[in-house]
Nucleic acid binder design. Sequence first.
DNA 1: CTAGAACTTAAAGTCAACTTTAAGTCAAGC
DNA 2: GCTTGACTTAAAGTTGACTTTAAGTTCTAG
Lengths: 136, 136
Amino acid sequence: MKIGELAARANLSASAIRYYEKLGLLAAPQRIGGQRRYPSGALQRVLLVRFATDMGFTLSEIKLFLNGLGDHIPVGPRWRKLASRKLVEVKQNISRSLKLKSLLQGLLRCHCASLEFCVTRLSLSSNLRGLSRSNR
Amino acid sequence: MKIGELAARANLSASAIRYYEKLGLLAAPQRIGGQRRYPSGALQRVLLVRFATDMGFTLSEIKLFLNGLGDHIPVGPRWRKLASRKLVEVKQNISRSLKLKSLLQGLLRCHCASLEFCVTRLSLSSNLRGLSRSNR
DNA sequence: CTAGAACTTAAAGTCAACTTTAAGTCAAGC
DNA sequence: GCTTGACTTAAAGTTGACTTTAAGTTCTAG
């Protein structure tokens, strides 16, 4: 499989594939005439990476539990640790977003002339602060 | 009020204040000996901007409904439109995060040897795709 | 009066995950 | 054999919200 086909099947771009390789998320494949030729297993690997990024892991986190360079903790516990950390983040994000939602709904129901009034009237100061402001 | 005091009171840095000024989110204040002197109203303004960014608006969106350059739609409707668009995003983010949460919990309960097995065993292919992958 | 903290500017750097560019090489179909 | 599309590289660009840097100016306390 050439890079274009792999990219198409994984629904991302060829340059993204090369980028994953450079980051060490994907093994450098055999080459024919300088061009990359992938075994079918590569697709599964790429899809796993996509899946993990969709779950909110960063590429360097993914690298950690895919080929765990750096420390000597085995894959299982390492993944488990990262995943439970991520779970906390996700939960925080949920509660933050729920707050946000009712806040926005409140502001939309409000008929103040200016936003400043709304904000002070509804005294929505900032119970928003300090919650993980990024699920990516 | 000098910039350092304003920054401290708004809990951000002096350079961020200058940045807001450059973006047009904050009026250029009077100067004494080249240094910025802010009226007390400036604090409220900065806090409003912080509040809006906390709600997930980008600085350029905030600029739009603060001093709406560009179009001639009055502030009320403009804010309303942006806010309801944001509300949709937030709702999408919530449902995405809820899926993520149960996914992670499922994976954590699973005792497969490798993540690949887990993923295929739980057939968690990607019902995750296509949901707003950014609440900022 | 002077040390040093706080201010000034424009421009460059940061992070993540890629994309784009430029300039060139290879492969497949006719 | 030639065209054309797919591939190759390294380096620079993108986005958003700032921060950092460098070099210089001003304010303030003692």
